[in-house]
Amino acid sequence: MTRNLPPALDLFDPLDRILVHDDFNRGMQGWTGLVGNYEDSLDSMLPEYADLRDPMLSNLTVWDTGTDGSLHGNYAMKLATLPRTGALAVAIKRLTWRVATRIRWESIVTFKPEASELKLSSTDVRAFGILLDLQDGDLKAQPHRVMPHIRYLNADESGRREQWQYKSTHRTVHDIGGRGETKSHFHLGPDSWTDLPDGSQRLCYNEIATKHNWYYLRLDFDLRDMQFREFQCNNRTYECRDIEPIRIPAMPNLWCMLNLAYFVETNSAKRAFLYVDSSLLSTDRE
């Protein structure tokens, strides 16, 4: 079928109903930072959440060639870590779902280390990734909170890795504060990542830290059985029906939750950046 769509939409392959098309030339559009849960004091949050950095609007300006701009204009959403090995930045958008159906989340992204050295720097970003934070509806028997995570492990302390990974297990869920009302668990740690089958993929880093080439990502997930379907990055499509997302008992106030998040992690004492040009979430029409 030929569709007559503007270029900013035509580069996506949405399902029948488009829920959200975020083009960051129009502002942040509901994307914000992630903070750990707390009670009475910010000191009560799990320490891994204390220094997560919030997203900003960027026109991709670099010291040697000036402003790159985004794919269809000036601005992209930028996640920037602290300049500390293992530091993370996260951006999240929070919705709820109304029909349990297949969902498709597509993105145009790129990642780079801060261009603070005149070196290749291609192993200075450890990883970038996407996650969904979902919960079944309140009428479901044996409901769950389900958290599909996928990341591109670009490099680690052993060097270049270039491997897609997923996460099926989680750390302990902690009580926060003393009233028994708030819980928290940190799910973005370096532990428990598993290689996606045949998930080795070389991307277009492009030689120096100031050249930005955009990538296409697509994640298909099914809210009916809370299972992965497919993941795509550029020319590679990964069958994901047999991999398990993180699955934990439902929490008391997250019914029908549908959260989307991007994250980036640095592999050196240098800031890592993930830029998101645009994001599109679509579903089957029930």
């Binding site: 204390a50 950095r53 960027s58 300006t61 920037a80």
Partner: peptide, 18 residues
């Protein structure tokens, strides 16, 4: 957020072109 500043400090860079 909740920084225990004592002595020199600097916030992270923030992009403001818009």
């Amino acid at each position: 957020r909740n920084a225990a500043w004592d002595g020199p400090f600097a916030t992270e860079p923030w992009e403001t072109a818009w």
